[in-house]
């Protein structure tokens, strides 16, 4: 079943077209790779998918927890619709611990009200304990449990990326958008990350869209690959199809 439909999507900044004429459908349960040269509009597309930018024209429709179109997107509502993301330039809460970072991801799953929190009524302890247990479970699967009390800024780069993914997962999304999850990781870490993404897709029943420059990761992991070039959709297909597509090869290697 399709869970994301993009129709004639355009986005321009002061006359410069960042994304133009994008049409696509994404099936539930897939891992989709989004690739393309720098400046091809991949991150802009993510920002459109998460309501940080609104389309200049065209629209985006999710069929997740409910059917919702891009007119109603607000960044803070996307999590409620079941969409969570990570950022290319890691945006962790630097002065907060790993545990606290992931608890922010859990934010919308908390159920106790403001009054309970101000006066610390019994509901506070119940729900905080529950959240703690769930988040700790998540941290363990990411091998981050030992670091739960470390400030995010003090983690090495690779682990910061993992915390960002864990933070997104804590919101219990249906669709996970990963913006260059392997950037700055060594080959060993990248391999682990590949397995981890595969595993979380199964475990949490997710659809994943990821932007990535590491082709080995993309080819190993993705069911479906979308190539962007100059803001437009250049090609789409399975890893083999994309690897043998002359247009794609040209876009990457340059030439006529």
């Amino acid at each position: 079943m399709e869970m994301l439909v993009v129709n004639n999507l355009y986005k321009s900044f002061g006359g410069v077209k960042a994304v133009s004429n994008i049409n696509m459908k994404i099936e539930e349960g897939q891992i989709v790779g989004l690739i393309g040269p720098n400046g091809a509009g991949k991150t802009t597309f993510f920002n459109l998918l998460t309501g940080i930018y609104s389309p200049s024209s065209g629209d985006i429709v999710y069929k997740l927890n409910q059917e919702i179109s891009s007119i109603n997107f607000r960044p803070s509502r996307m999590v409620k619709y079941g969409v969570a993301r990570t950022f290319q330039n890691i945006r962790l809460f630097k002065e907060m611990t790993v545990l606290e970072n992931v608890l922010i991801g859990y934010h919308n799953n908390f159920k106790y009200n403001l009054f309970t929190s101000l006066f610390r009524l019994p509901g506070y302890y119940k729900h905080e304990d529950e959240a703690y247990d769930e988040v700790v479970e998540l941290l363990k699967t990411f091998n981050l449990y030992d670091k739960k009390d470390v400030l995010a800024k003090n983690l090495p780069y690779g682990e910061q990326r993992k915390v960002e993914i864990a933070r997104a997962l804590a919101s219990k999304p249906k669709l996970l958008l990963l913006d260059e999850p392997a950037a700055g990781m060594n080959p060993q870490e990248t391999r682990e990350l590949t397995e981890l993404i595969q595993w979380i897709r199964e475990e949490f029943d997710l659809t994943v869209i990821l932007i990535e420059h590491d082709m080995s990761l993309v080819m190993d992991l993705c069911d479906d690959i979308i190539v962007f070039n100059y803001g437009t959709l250049l090609a789409r297909g399975t890893p083999e199809e994309i690897q043998n597509n002359p247009e794609v090869i040209k876009a990457y290697l340059g030439g006529e």
Partner: peptide, 26 residues
């Protein structure tokens, strides 16, 4: 009490990175 609850953590996350907080549903 407030700052140690999820409401308070949301406030702290705004101080740390407003865009990321927003993206996490705050």
């Amino acid at each position: 009490n407030f700052v140690k609850s999820y409401h308070g953590r949301a406030c702290i996350s705004i101080r740390e990175d407003e865009i990321a907080a927003e993206a996490m549903g705050v």
